[in-house]
């Protein structure tokens, strides 16, 4: 359910466009970041070489390309799909792994700084939603496993 996927039809259109390249902050500033090259390789069926690259993590998700795009696709969506595949193979950066672990364990990316709150006279922080979140995550995993079994049997 709800998985980021590559949309080959839209990417076909990209191969003749490239408009987002001209406005993308990563393309403009980071050497080797080139949506057009990635799209070409995906369409050739040769995306694997990008999965272990630093490039796919350099998309800033600034959504410039999405706003520019005549198909409202945006190159970022291809990048998200590549990152999802890379993460499934364990190729994501260590920092992303650590952040993910913390998120699934605690439901957030850090706990409220209590001593500083006191210093600034801030009220006690609202209660955490961690327990309910963990239950939700477990339910989601169950639903996914059920989906997978169903797909396997079909």
């Amino acid at each position: 359910m709800l998985d980021a996927q590559l949309n080959m039809k839209l990417l076909e259109m990209c191969s003749g466009c490239g408009a987002c390249y001209s406005i993308c902050p990563s393309s403009l500033n980071l050497p080797g970041y080139d949506p057009r090259a990635v799209i070409k390789d995906i369409l050739k069926g040769d995306m694997d070489k990008w999965l272990a690259s630093k490039s796919i993590w350099q998309c800033l998700e600034c959504h410039y390309c999405l706003e520019m795009c005549f198909q409202h696709y945006g190159f970022e969506n291809a990048m998200t799909a590549l990152r999802t595949i890379a993460a499934k193979r364990g190729l994501h950066p260590p920092q992303v792994k650590r952040g993910w672990d913390m998120f699934v364990k605690t439901s957030r990316l850090g706990e409220p700084a209590l001593p500083a709150r006191k210093k600034f006279g801030l009220p006690d922080p609202p209660k955490s939603g961690a327990e309910e979140f963990k239950k939700l995550h477990a339910l989601l995993k169950e639903a996914k496993e059920k989906d997978a079994r169903k797909a396997h049997n079909e």
Binding site: V96, W100, F103, S128, G129, K144
Partner: peptide, 22 residues
Amino acid sequence: DGFTCCPEKSLVNNIDHSLFVA
């Protein structure tokens, strides 16, 4: 009470879109 991380898109969405949405 009970808000969690929004969650951070670049982190959570890249690994599990369905958990991001939920």
